[in-house]
Design a protein around this nucleic acid. Sequence first.
DNA 1: AACAGAAATGGACCGTAGTCCGCTAATCGC
DNA 2: GCGATTAGCGGACTACGGTCCATTTCTGTT
Lengths: 194, 194
Amino acid sequence: MLEPIRHERSDAARNRVAILQAAERLVAEEGAGTVTMDQVACAAKVGKGTLFRHFGDRCGLMRALLDERERSFQEDFIRGPAPLGPGAPARERLVAFGERMLEHIEIQGDLLAAAENGAPGERLRHSVYGAYRAHVVALLGDTGYGGEIGYLADVLLASLVSELVLHQRRVLEMSSEQLKSCWGELVRVVLPAG
Amino acid sequence: MLEPIRHERSDAARNRVAILQAAERLVAEEGAGTVTMDQVACAAKVGKGTLFRHFGDRCGLMRALLDERERSFQEDFIRGPAPLGPGAPARERLVAFGERMLEHIEIQGDLLAAAENGAPGERLRHSVYGAYRAHVVALLGDTGYGGEIGYLADVLLASLVSELVLHQRRVLEMSSEQLKSCWGELVRVVLPAG
DNA sequence: AACAGAAATGGACCGTAGTCCGCTAATCGC
DNA sequence: GCGATTAGCGGACTACGGTCCATTTCTGTT
């Protein structure tokens, strides 16, 4: 996020940081859904072209803002302490994974939603989804689940999509606790105690 | 789709039909994702304002194009022959429902994707989703499933979202048969034989 | 048939995401 | 330091979805 990729020119690095700071502030002030790219460019004292050169498109900028937390999340479930990280039985790790994802959505909801509504299917092709999926696939493999592991991983992740979770929280008025408990129940139903 | 709602003025009815025909042709010719509202308005020899007055927004137009098939789909699972309609055990009806939905996506994939990527959460608030959800909830009730029925309905429907299914078909290169069999397996796992 | 009120129309207009390309300035070899 | 090279810059421009409202067209009433 603030480290150069390859060999970034100094002015480019300066601008990238300026953009991220401006974007972060604006998103905090008025929400990820309503901030415009013009606003960000203007606040960062940078041309629009520069903005798009750095982040590709609106979703790319939002993803960059999420990147830090995303990274630490991934770090936690790959190498962190149990039950999220290695050490606990796969089924418990999966429960913990979902709970952590729900917390992630709780905190970063609007930003996640803004980062995900790009071209259809883009989300699923992106490396972040790939990382989640690989993790879930690995856990399912460890439980000795007999069916199509990849399919089940996609289904489980589909029930943790931010759009759906935000709907459950805000429209259906389910509490975080309810959602976590439902997720746990779902995992238990799909992967009967082993 | 071609019947007046309430008391539609004759010119309005004419224009609505013209728009739907033009849109249908253009979508068939170049895909639902790329047709623009200007193109449709122009082809239908109608002002842009008229287009938006009739259908609200782009998704509304796409939904209107889907409406006929959507209606017959709903008719089938509410009143049609078993196993999709009443008569079969709930679990089998649910399997049939998913299979039918997969076929629906197979045929109307791009149009569905275009109809669904509106404002975040709009899809879930729309009456079409409501109808599906009510149906699944009813079926789950009939199976005597013990957990949170509404939650499970949302999860099951999330695994039938067009974005995901199109990804599974086109990127993961799963066949329709594979998808159907995976869906059946999923239902069987979630609702153990009763 | 003529009128009044209501409903529908169309296209100019707006805001926003994203592109393009001539210009600027950082970097590197000398 | 000093050019040459080229990554990076910026903002005018385009494309598209969506809104607005003065004007036109329909319809029920007399």
